[in-house]
Write a protein that binds this DNA or RNA. Structure first.
Length: 694
RNA sequence: GCUGGCGUAGCUCAAUCGGUAGAGCACCGGUUUUGUAAACCGGAUGUUAGGGGUUCAAGUCCCCUCGCUAGCUCCA
C-alpha cells in the first residue's frame, strides 16, 4: 500500500525570478488541453492543472487511463466523499484521506460512532450528486496562520494539528470544490483532477476503525474505504477480481477440499485433515530432499523448556507477550502459596489496595515464577539449537554447521491478528540455523539465496521482492555487531546483483534480516522467506569453536527459512493455485471413474497398476452417473480423472481428462502412467529439478 | 488488545412486527447400471455459539463470555 500523505509536499522548487503560469494555460496554448487531462507530469512529479509552475517547464499531460491518473482520481474522490460525509453527518471531523494501492480511504472522527453499510449507500448517493454538479477543484496557497485560523474556525482540530506539523518553508495549499456557498475545502498537497465531473466510477467498499496517526494510544477514528476508476468497466473488473480472490480464499478452499479445519477449543491452531496433511508433508519432504545436497542436517528438539533458556536467549525480555507458559501440575499449588507469601511479605501485614496487589502480581510473575517454575513452549527453535551447539567443543573444521528443524512452534498472537493459515498460534517453519565463522557469512547468504530462488520457482512463484530490515529499537547486542551484520546482508545482495529495499527498524531483536516477499497469481504480496544474521545469541550462549590457530572464537549464527511458516506457505500456495494442486503435490493425482458397475474389476486392476507405478490414485465406483462423478471430481480439483467404460476395459486402456487441458482421448495405462509421472516433479510439467546449490 | 460486522442442520442459506425453526446439497435406505459438470423415490438431521435478562411468548430485543470476520495496532 502506498500511503501517500496528502499534505506536506513542497509543490515545486523553482526560482522566484521565473515567470509562472498554470499547466492549464500551457496546455491550452499548445492545444493539448482536453476533457481527458487529469493532471500533468513535470519530471518525476505529478501536479494538477491549477498549480503554478515555471512558464518554460516541460510538462506532459496525464490523461484518464494513463499510469498515475488513477491516484489523482482516487484522491479527488476521497475529497468528494469527505464532503458528502460532512453534509450528511454534521459534527464529523475530517483527518486524512490518501489513496492506496487499489483505492482510497478517509478517516473521520464521528461523535456518533461507526458508519453502517446503509450510511455508505447514502454517502455514495450524495457523492454522485457532487460529481454530477461537475464543479472545478480550485487550489490556493495560504499562509500558515490563515490556514490554521480557517480550520480552527470550522472546529477541524485534526487539520490544525497537521498544519502545525508542516515544516516551515513548505507551501500550504488548500483545495476547494463545489458551487459558492456549498463549497468544501480541505488542506491538501494535491494534485487533483480539474473537475469533480471526471470521477466517473466510484464505490465505497467498507468501514473500519483506525487510530489517529496509526497509534493505538490515540483515539479511534472511523475509516471509510472506497475505490474509483476512470470507467465503470474498470471498476466492474476490479470488483470481479475481488470476487475471484474470495473464491480462492484458502479458508474457504480448506473447508471445501477437506484440507484443514479449526475449532474454537484451540483457536488459531490448525487441524490438518488427511488430504491437507499429505500436501503439507509433500512440501516438507521436498525441502528435506533438497537439504541433503545443500548440506543441512535435520535435528529434533524439545517443545518446552525451563524459562532459564529464554532468559539467556533474550526471549523473556523481548518476546514474553507472544509466549505460552505452562505450569507442571506438581507446581500449581506451590506457586499459589509462594504468591501469597510474597504478597504478605511485601504488604508487611498491612492491608493493600487492589491496585497494589496487581502491581505485586506483575512483579511476582516477572521475578519469581518466570525464572523458576514456569515452562515455556518454544516460539522459536534458535535457543534450543544453541544448547545443541554448546553441548561439546566445536572445531572450525565442522563449520558451517547447518541444522534444520521442523519442530512445532507456539506463539501467542493477539486475537485480532490471526487469519486462517496465514497467521496462527501453532505452526512449523522450514527453519534452520547455520553456525559459521564470520568470514563464511557472506557465502552462506549467497548459497541460501540460490536455494530460495530454486524453491520459489518450483512452487511457481516468480515475482520476488527483497527487503533489508535493519536494527529495531528493542534489541540485544552492540552497535558494532549490528553494523557488521547489516553490512554482510547488504554485501551478499549486491554481489548477487539482487535489487532490494531497506526497511529501517524492522529487524528481529537479535539481528537484521532479509525478507523475501512474493506475489501470488492475484498480485497480492506475502512475506515468506527470511535470513537473519545474529552475532548476539552466540554471545548470550557463549558459543565457541576452536580455530585453526588453536584459540577460541565466537561463531556467527544465521537464522533462515524459505517457506517461512509451513502453514502460512500452504495458505498462500492454495490461493496461488486456486486449490488445483499440480501433480507433484496433489493429495491424489488420479481418480478413476467407472461408467457403470460393470467396469469395477478392471478399475481396481488399473488402480493397482498405477499405484504400483508410484501414482497416488483413488476410485469412484459409486452408482452415480458419469456426469455426476465428473462434476464431483472437478470440484475436488484432482489433476487427472481416468474414465473407464466398456471400451477401455476391453482394450485395457483409459480415457484421461486433465484438470488443465480437459479430455485427452484414449490411451494405454502405460502411457498414461508415463505422462503422470513425467509431470510429477516440483515445478510441474516439463520443469527441471531445481539446480543444486553446492 | 481496539472499532465495526457476523454466529441458525456437516456445507450454503431462509424464517414478515417478538408468535409452531425451514430449503437445497451432503448423509442414510431403496430403485436405477448409466460415456465426459448434478438420475429418481423415501428417511433422518438442531441446546438457533454459550450463559444471563426482558416478555404471556425470544433465532429475533438487552447484557456478558467465546469464536469468526473487515480493518487498526502488532508480526521477532
Amino acid at each position: 500500500m502506498t500511503h501517500q500523505a496528502n499534505v506536506r509536499r513542497q509543490t515545486q522548487s523553482m526560482s522566484e525570478s521565473k515567470e509562472r503560469t498554470t499547466p492549464a494555460e500551457l496546455l491550452t496554448s499548445k492545444g493539448l488541453l482536453d476533457a481527458a487531462v487529469v493532471a500533468v507530469r513535470i519530471g518525476k512529479e505529478i501536479v494538477d492543472v491549477h498549480t503554478l509552475v515555471d512558464a518554460d517547464a516541460a510538462i506532459e499531460p496525464i490523461r484518464v487511463g494513463d499510469p498515475g491518473a488513477l491516484d489523482v482520481i482516487r484522491h479527488s474522490t476521497a475529497h468528494v466523499m469527505a464532503d458528502a460525509v460532512q453534509r450528511l453527518f454534521p459534527g464529523t471531523k475530517v483527518t486524512i484521506g490518501p489513496c492506496t494501492e487499489d483505492g482510497f480511504y478517509y478517516d473521520f472522527d464521528r461523535p456518533d460512532g461507526a458508519f453502517t453499510d446503509a450510511d455508505l449507500r447514502k454517502i455514495e448517493k450524495v457523492m454522485r450528486e457532487i460529481v454530477k454538479a461537475n464543479s472545478p477543484f480550485r487550489r490556493e496557497i495560504v499562509s500558515r496562520d490563515e490556514a490554521k485560523e480557517r480550520f480552527a474556525k470550522l472546529g477541524e482540530t485534526y487539520k490544525v494539528e497537521i498544519i502545525e506539523g508542516i515544516p516551515e518553508g513548505e507551501d500550504i495549499s488548500l483545495y476547494t470544490h463545489g458551487a459558492k456557498g456549498k463549497d468544501w475545502t480541505d488542506l491538501c498537497a494535491g494534485p487533483h483532477v480539474p473537475s469533480t465531473g471526471m470521477l466517473a466510477a466510484v464505490k465505497l467498499t467498507s468501514v473500519a476503525g483506525a487510530y489517529w496517526r496509526g497509534d493505538e494510544r490515540n483515539p479511534m477514528l472511523q475509516r471509510i474505504y472506497g475505490t474509483a476508476f476512470h470507467t465503470q468497466e474498470a471498476l466492474d473488473e476490479h470488483l470481479r477480481l475481488l470476487e475471484e480472490a474470495k473464491k480462492r480464499d484458502h479458508r474457504k478452499l480448506g473447508k471445501e477440499l477437506e484440507l484443514f479445519m479449526f475449532h474454537e477449543w484451540a483457536p488459531a491452531m490448525p487441524f490438518f485433515y488427511p488430504r491437507g496433511a499429505k500436501v503439507y508433508n509433500k512440501m516438507v519432504g521436498y525441502l528435506r530432499d533438497l537439504y541433503v545436497d545443500a548440506g543441512y542436517e535435520e535435528v529434533i528438539t524439545p517443545q518446552i523448556y525451563d524459562t532459564k533458556l529464554y532468559k539467556t536467549s533474550g526471549h523473556l525480555a523481548n518476546y514474553r507477550e507472544n509466549m505460552y507458559f505452562g505450569i507442571p501440575s506438581d507446581s500449581l499449588e506451590g506457586i499459589l502459596e509462594a504468591f501469597e507469601a510474597f504478597v504478605s511479605k511485601q504488604a508487611a501485614g498491612g492491608a493493600i489496595t487492589s491496585e497494589q496487589r496487581k502491581a505485586l502480581r506483575e512483579e511476582f510473575l516477572a521475578r519469581e515464577i518466570l525464572e523458576a517454575r514456569f515452562a515455556g513452549a518454544k516460539p522459536m527453535n534458535c535457543p534450543g539449537h544453541c544448547l545443541m551447539y554448546a553441548s561439546r567443543r566445536r572445531s572450525y573444521r565442522e563449520l558451517p554447521w547447518r541444522i534444520a528443524d521442523f519442530g512445532r512452534l507456539h506463539r501467542y498472537e493477539r486475537g485480532g491478528v490471526v487469519h486462517g493459515l496465514a497467521r496462527v498460534r501453532s505452526f512449523s517453519q522450514d527453519d534452520a540455523h547455520i553456525f559459521c565463522m564470520p568470514e563464511q557469512v557472506q557465502e552462506e547468504i549467497t548459497k541460501f539465496n540460490r536455494l530460495l530462488y530454486a524453491i520459489y520457482r518450483a512452487f511457481d512463484f516468480k515475482d520476488v521482492h527483497i527487503k533489508l530490515a535493519t536494527r529495531p529499537e528493542k534489541r540485544i547486542g552492540t552497535d558494532d555487531m549490528w553494523d557488521r551484520a547489516e553490512k554482510a546482508l547488504e554485501a551478499a545482495l549486491v554481489e548477487a546483483g539482487l535489487a532490494f529495499e531497506v526497511t529501517p527498524g524492522e529487524g528481529a531483536f537479535y539481528g537484521p534480516k532479509l525478507e523475501f516477499h512474493v506475489r501470488d497469481a492475484l498480485k497480492r504480496s506475502w512475506q515468506l522467506g527470511t535470513i537473519q544474521v545474529d552475532y548476539a545469541m552466540p554471545e548470550s550462549f557463549e558459543l565457541e569453536y576452536v580455530g585453526s590457530d588453536g584459540a577460541m572464537h565466537r561463531p556467527v549464527m544465521l537464522h533462515r527459512a524459505i517457506l517461512g511458516s509451513v502453514e502460512r506457505f500452504m495458505g498462500v500456495y492454495i490461493e496461488h493455485c486456486g486449490g488445483a494442486f499440480p501433480v507433484w503435490i496433489a493429495p491424489e493425482q488420479v481418480t478413476l471413474l467407472t461408467v457403470s458397475e460393470k467396469q469395477e474389476a478392471y478399475a481396481l486392476e488399473a488402480k493397482a497398476y498405477l499405484s504400483g507405478r508410484g501414482i497416488r490414485v483413488i476410485t469412484d465406483l459409486s452408482s452415480d452417473k458419469l456426469g455426476a462423478k465428473i462434476r464431483n471430481a472437478r470440484m475436488m480439483r484432482y489433476p487427472y480423472l481416468g474414465i473407464i467404460g466398456d471400451r477401455e476395459a476391453e482394450t485395457r486402456s483409459i480415457s484421461p481428462r486433465s484438470h488443465v487441458d480437459g479430455e485427452l482421448g484414449s490411451m494405454t495405462l502405460v502411457s498414461f502412467a508415463d505422462r503422470v509421472l513425467a509431470e510429477a516433479v516440483p515445478g510441474g510439467q516439463g520443469a527441471q529439478q531445481p539446480p543444486k546449490t553446492e
